[in-house]
């Protein structure tokens, strides 16, 4: 029995499973790396390991800014501000309104589910297909080159009437 099975086992090992299509790897990448992936918590995104550390820094930062502003705005007696600094302060041009323009709109479908035949309220048979896709809109400020991109998931359900005899 062993010799027999060894023989067939050797024969089987000369075969290998059919390769996975690139599309499947892309779909998994979209799930694991795309907008639907499990997101890090807000404090992890800010680079903190513990939420209290983030809260602490969050409270400390405005306090420091307020203190620094008070210190700059109210110089003590005898403190002279250099004319060049004063000039620079006053010569900052007023901020212009942004000129963001949409440059790209894409729709990437990553899953199609045929959900079979369903009945409407009127008992009419319809074939229902659910499409899941990701829409992306990109804007660019022509003046400064600033780019903004927003992606969000979308789900479409399409029903096509089925002809009955």
């Amino acid at each position: 029995m062993n010799e027999d099975t060894d023989d067939i086992e050797t024969q089987l090992r000369r075969w290998r499973p059919v390769a996975v299509r690139d599309d499947l790897t892309r779909r998994i990448a979209l799930d694991l790396e795309g907008p639907h992936r499990q997101r890090a918590t807000w404090w992890q995104r800010l680079g903190f390991r513990h939420p209290m550390a983030a809260v602490g820094w969050g409270l400390a930062a405005p306090a420091l800014i307020i203190l620094a502003t008070l210190h700059l705005d109210a110089p003590g007696p005898g403190t002279a501000i250099a004319p060049s600094v004063r000039a620079a302060h006053s010569s900052v041009p007023p901020r212009e309104p942004t000129t963001m323009q949409a440059t790209r709109i894409t729709n990437r479908r990553y899953q199609t589910n045929d959900e079979g035949v369903v009945l409407t309220r009127e008992q009419r048979p319809m074939r229902q297909t659910r499409y899941q896709s990701e829409d992306t809109i990109a804007w660019q400020d022509a003046r400064t080159g600033t780019q903004l991109e927003v992606s969000y998931p979308r789900e479409d359900v399409v029903q096509i009437p089925v002809t009955t005899r």
Partner: peptide
């Protein structure tokens, strides 16, 4: 799903699912 479809429709409306002929394995 198939049970639902069978209940909703006559039996011969939808085409039967054809058996997949794509190979499982390829030779080295």
């Amino acid at each position: 799903r198939r049970r639902r479809e069978q209940t909703a429709l006559d039996e011969n409306i939808l085409p039967a699912v054809t058996a997949c002929e794509e190979p499982w394995l390829i030779p080295d």
